[in-house]
Design a binder for these strands. Structure first.
Lengths: 189, 189
DNA sequence: GTCTATATTTCGATAGAC
DNA sequence: GTCTATCGAAATATAGAC
């Protein structure tokens, strides 16, 4: 989140991110990155240790961007609106950068994930709002409910597994409203 | 779902499935499969067109096994119990075969997915139970709510993204109970 | 920091004998 | 249907000159 200092390394990470979205992780080869940078592949090793480290840098960068976007839309006044806004923004991020979203949420095994701390930071605002709504006793459970539903919905949407007919945006809004209601309505036990 | 006829092809698919769980898709090489079958790699091409077709066969086989497991535990009498039983079984399947689960649910881009029809078949019993509980008006929305939550929870659990403390099994049970309650309680609008 | 050249590995897939 | 032999294509990464 420090301002991108436009060093070569940052440009390399940006290029790698673009290739990621265009063709998935396997499209992020040192050769492809080099070609797009107008350079030869071996030159990259002056800025990046190896391919794996480059992918990790892409994941970190993406997680930070997600964090920034969620913080931008959060509403500290009304937890209910804050949850809606952030979860909507999470989905928008996924639409904009589906491959990065999958990596940040750890959906792809064998690929670099963000550290737990980085992921927690991304979802911190969301957890705070959820806690405010669900009460402290089931704060963590409630947060997991929201995040799990949102992530599951978005993942299946991206995978094309929800194409059963009907309007997906409506299903999203309906589900979100039910989830929030389930948080507010504290059960007996 | 037809009884495995023990042809060579079936054994190859089984071996590939085992390799998948042990090392992910990239561990499913023609050479690795051949070695475990006690045969040379080129021989496999007498039974399988190419590697991609083998992976697709693994996905189909896994989807059918999931279907069978869900049908085995469903309860046609009580939709509420049926949902719980099936969703629990879905999670158990994911614990038993995490890599296959990710493929069946389409979590991995650039890898073969089950056809929409095959995935629908896997979730058919679950959708039926959900419909019985949520009413016909929001049947599809309700089904998506359940499946999205379950898939999201399981995905994040497998990814290790839920390790924020607390008992995961308790969080699962709590969330499931809230989801079912949200289905039963029809909103005003 | 960039280049050329290259070592190395690994894999998918085919040809053709048996 | 199995084998040996092999092609061909990537790709990561290093060495060393400039």
């Amino acid at each position: 989140m420090p301002a991108p200092s436009r060093t070569d390394r940052d440009r390399i990470v940006e290029t790698a991110s673009a290739l990621l979205e265009e063709g998935g992780t396997e499209a992020v080869t040192m050769q492809a990155v080099a070609q797009r940078e107008g350079v030869q592949a071996p030159s990259l090793y002056k800025h990046v240790q190896h391919r794996r480290a480059l992918l990790e840098a892409v994941v970190r960068s993406s997680a930070r961007q997600l964090t920034a976007r969620l913080e931008r839309v959060r509403d500290d006044g009304d937890p209910r609106r804050s949850i809606t806004a952030q979860v909507d923004e999470l989905r928008r991020f996924a639409h904009d950068r589906p491959r990065a979203y999958a990596l940040v949420m750890g959906a792809a095994p064998d690929l670099p994930r963000p550290t737990p701390e980085l992921l927690s930071a991304s979802l911190a605002s969301l957890l705070a709002a959820t806690t405010a709504l669900a009460g402290s006793e089931h704060a963590l459970d409630g947060a997991r409910l929201v995040v799990a539903w949102a992530n599951g919905f978005i993942s299946m949407e991206l995978a094309g597994a929800l194409q059963l007919g009907g309007d997906i945006d409506v299903a999203w809004a309906w589900g979100l409203q039910r989830i929030v209601a389930a948080l507010e309505d504290r059960p007996a036990d």
